[in-house]
């Protein structure tokens, strides 16, 4: 474990917390006759969270962490896996099933088909993998799918244009997590013998590049001190 890896995991954890915080805020409106100002804003417009992306992440973690009961790496590793599995499935549950949270989800804007991402990733994992076993192919599939799972979210952001603050932070934290993982790989490559993982690196690099455009607008909105807006 190095500082980049730990920082990467922590930003990933923070992104999940930001999303849960957002859901909690929306949820807390449930019993009130007058929603709080933040809830009111969230309910007025859509939450800007893509259910498609969240469902893809749930699938990513479900297929990647199949080893949770068979291989023990560390207590840290197991706990983090449980957090990511639990949070991703509960987020999906809230957006689909919770009365209030569901209302803030803009279904008509979030039209990306899972199928277009899942199928090519599955085929690619069957062709390009390190070992042709059930667990290994699904693990590789999870890497490919994670690389592109953010696409429905980025498309939704571009469509809605007016980006809610928490949603912007969420996407930024996810991008930061990927960038830190690249630094982690560079560090490990020079400090650990035989540390070469082409599949992980290339899919991780592709994933990070997808955030480049978002990062550009995120940082210029910070620099100019204006609300984040993506061009049409």
């Amino acid at each position: 474990m190095n500082i980049f890896r730990l920082a990467g995991d922590m930003t990933h954890l923070m992104s999940v917390l930001v999303l849960l915080l957002k859901i909690h805020t929306i949820k807390s409106c449930a019993g009130k006759s007058y929603p709080c100002s933040l809830c009111f804003i969230l309910l007025e417009s859509s939450s800007g969270i893509s259910l498609k992306t969240q469902e893809l992440y749930a699938l990513v973690f479900a297929t990647r962490y199949l080893d949770i009961f068979t291989d023990f790496i560390s207590v840290y590793n197991t706990i983090m896996k449980l957090i990511f599995l639990g949070s991703s499935f509960s987020i999906v549950w809230y957006i689909r099933r919770h009365k209030i949270v569901r209302r803030s989800y803009d279904k008509d804007q979030d039209t990306f088909r899972h199928f277009f991402l899942v199928l090519p990733c599955l085929l690619l994992a069957l062709i390009i993998n390190e070992k042709f076993t059930f667990k290994e192919v699904l693990w590789t599939f999870s890497l490919y799918l994670e690389a592109v799972a953010i696409l429905p979210q980025l498309i939704l952001l571009q469509r809605t244009r007016n980006i809610d603050n928490l949603t912007g932070q969420y996407v930024f934290l996810l991008g930061a997590y990927r960038a830190l993982y690249i630094l982690n790989w560079i560090y490990r490559y020079f400090t650990e013998p035989h540390y070469v993982h082409w599949i992980t690196w290339i899919s991780g690099l592709v994933q990070t590049l997808l955030y480049a455009d978002f990062f550009y607008y995120y940082f210029s909105s910070l620099k100019n001190n204006v609300k984040l807006k993506l061009p049409a």
Binding site: N184, H194, T200
Partner: peptide, 10 residues
């Protein structure tokens, strides 16, 4: 190819 840390990353 996985001499160092078999899937030890999240």
């Amino acid at each position: 190819a996985k001499d160092s840390g078999e899937h030890d990353e999240l």
